[in-house]
Design a protein around this nucleic acid. Structure first.
Length: 589
RNA sequence: GGGGGCGUAGCUCAAUUGGUUAGAGUACCGGACUGUCGAUCCGGUGGUUGCGGGUUCGAGUCCCGUCGCCCUCGCCA
């Protein structure tokens, strides 16, 4: 063992170690030079320990005075209880310090481009600078805690699923491009010029083939790649817990995931999630929350007001209803005096951003409404509005009239905006609202291409009772599909698959795919279904988003060690970059 | 591709209506200091105001263009 190698980590030493000779390795977190006395806070992944250099060792003290932030050092010394009253209660190791006997500078460090040392309430440096020097940013304890939490998440998942009899199987990264879905990342083949592999958007087809192969309970923590634009919760390269089970229906998948959810929150955060998880029908979610991934930590539920709007003289409402639109609204309890005319205008801007034409508002008083549209609302309608929205004096009612999907979008986003400005979410509270969203429609209308498109994916089984309407009324067919929603994020989604080749073929037909086209694109799957495919279904959980929930961050880059920026560029390595002409030539490009 | 926000010292920010030599904290450098813990005190270095052009007697500030970063719409079966 080299003389500088550590005996303990920087998070380890306690009062009971007093008197022991130790060696610590780590980075200089802070230094406090007092002339005849130098203190160093030494940092590693496990914690921080104070090292003290005393005046008896003149040369050593002089060397310690040269130390700067982020130097990597080895300290040989003796653990010592701190002087009475000098303990640091903010530090796990604060009862002790290490009296240095020997200092080895393992590596020096220039002044870092930003401070690594973390303090409460400090402003972080620009994110692009921190991404450029990601290895420095990753030294920050808060980021280290986040990645440790992510490790814990994956560890709990693997242990739990192993106990439940699941088998982890890897599937290819180099696969075949399949149409529909996200844009593929493509990889050229050297051996077959002008031919391309696609990186997987998900292991979807492989896991179904594993079911055909009899593996029964499969999982994989799998990297997925989609060449689409990024968001705060979306990276081009992300990780799914991919799962599939044979001989199951929806309730079996729910039971497994609910057990897993409970284990994860209990073991990662000590939080109990009440089971069974609530189930929300898609149509109800859209009506009540304007969103298929509602944040259930606060109310502000949307109510249908179309029937009442029909009884008014307000042309905007009546015109909307006559052209098939909807009138819906929500009650912002006790908020009438929280929004000035200017504040209400800003709320109007929010809904306009989502294409709504405008926002009607009503300030509720004990015996009357104050509102620009009050004169159009007959007394019985006013009374009915009070009842429908449980309105009391001091409440603020907000109403949108438009096409149904516009109303949902506008009010759904308004709801989130209100929760934000009214601070309805306590960031300190470990509050998790987990729910299933079910009863999704199988198909959505692609108006541009004038055809039906798969809402989930084309291998999703329709509800048995809707099977007869597959050709006659595709829009009314519901799917055996389900999403798992946590605090307003879609954290998982899956379905029971079609295991019958005839049903699969009928579904392709609805999607406007001929037998030949289907064979061309998914022939291997259709063939496999013929060879004794068991009934099967599964789900994929977004590991990055789960990690965001557990780490309580809204930024997916916080839970990925080396993320891409919003343009899908790696600011640290500079990828993507040019390649040699020789490489291109070999690939026939 | 569209909308919004941002870009000033290594870092975080300020700079009245367009007006003197662009400031502060921190970091960094030098000095003092034997119980500090975001040490303290004294002194100092540090600026292509993202880049290019324009308007003006005068531009960090106004205009045009451009680059970069973040949020968002579209997109993400």
């Amino acid at each position: 063992m080299a003389s500088w190698q550590r005996t303990h980590t920087c998070g380890e030493l306690r009062a009971e170690h007093a008197g022991q000779a130790v060696v610590l390795n780590g980075w200089v977190n802070t230094y406090r030079n007092q002339g005849g006395l130098v203190f160093i806070d030494l940092r590693d992944r496990y914690g921080v320990t104070q090292v003290v250099f005393e005046s008896e060792r003149v040369e050593l003290l002089k060397a310690a005075q040269e130390l700067r932030s982020e130097f990597v050092v080895s300290i040989r010394g003796q653990v010592s209880r701190r002087l009475e009253g000098k303990e640091n209660k903010d530090l796990a190791t604060g009862a002790v310090e290490v009296k240095a006997h020997e200092l080895t500078i393992l590596n020096r460090c220039p002044t870092p481009p930003f401070e690594v040392t973390e303090f409460a309430a400090q402003e972080l440096a620009n994110e692009d600078l921190r991404l450029q020097y990601r290895y420095l940013d990753l030294r920050r304890p808060s980021l280290q805690r986040t990645l440790m939490m992510r490790h814990r998440l994956c560890k709990v998942i693997r242990d739990h699923l192993d106990q439940q009899g699941f088998l982890e199987v890897e599937t290819p990264l180099l696969g075949r491009s399949t149409p529909e879905g996200a844009r593929d990342y493509l990889v050229p083949s050297r051996v077959f010029p002008k031919s391309w592999f696609a990186l997987p958007q998900s292991p979807q087809l492989y896991k179904q083939l594993l079911m055909v192969a009899g593996y029964d309970k499969y999982f994989q923590i799998a990297r997925c790649l989609r060449d689409e634009d990024l968001r705060a919760d979306r990276q081009p390269e992300f990780t799914q817990l991919d799962m599939e089970m044979s001989f199951v229906e929806m309730d079996d998948v729910f039971a497994v995931i609910e057990g897993l959810t409970s284990a994860v929150f209990q073991q990662c955060l000590g939080v109990s999630i009440p089971l069974p998880l609530p189930r929300l029908r898609y149509a109800d979610a859209m009506l009540r929350y304007g969103n298929d991934k509602p944040d259930l930590r606060y109310g502000l539920e949307i109510a249908e007001l179309s029937d009442l709007a029909a009884q008014t003289e307000f042309q905007v409402f009546r015109g909307t209803l006559e052209s098939g639109g909807k009138v819906r609204g929500l009650n912002v309890v006790a908020a009438a005096d929280k929004f000035s005319r200017k504040g209400l205008d800003e709320l109007g801007e929010v809904v306009k951003r989502y294409n709504a034409k405008g926002l009607a508002w009503i300030k509720v008083e004990a015996d009357k409404f104050t509102s620009p549209i009050e004169k159009f609302l007959p007394a019985p309608v006013q009374q009915a509005l009070r009842e429908r929205l449980s309105a009391k004096a001091g409440d603020l009612l907000l109403i949108v009239a438009d096409k149904e999907d516009t109303v949902c979008q506008a009010l759904g986003n308004l709801r989130a905006h209100l929760a934000n400005v009214l601070k309805l979410i306590d960031p300190e509270k470990l509050d998790y609202k987990v729910a299933w969203v079910i009863d999704f429609p199988s198909f959505i209308r692609d108006e541009e291409e004038n055809r039906w498109a798969a809402n989930h994916h084309p291998f999703t089984a329709p509800m048995d009772e809707d099977l007869a309407k597959l050709e006659s009324d595709p829009g009314s067919v519901r799917a055996k599909a389900y999403d798992l929603v946590i605090n307003g994020y879609e954290c998982g989604g899956g379905s029971i698959r079609i295991h019958n080749p005839d049903v699969q073929q009928r579904l392709f037909s609805v999607l406007g795919m001929s037998r030949e086209q289907a064979q061309e694109r998914f022939g291997f799957l259709l063939d496999a279904l013929k060879f004794g495919a068991p009934p099967h279904g599964g789900i994929a959980l977004g590991i990055d988003r789960w990690a965001m929930m557990l780490a309580r961050t809204g930024n997916i880059r916080d839970v990925i060690a080396f993320p891409k920026n919003q343009k899908a560029r790696d600011l640290m390595t500079g990828a993507p970059g040019a390649v040699d002409a020789k490489q291109l030539k070999e690939l026939g490009l």
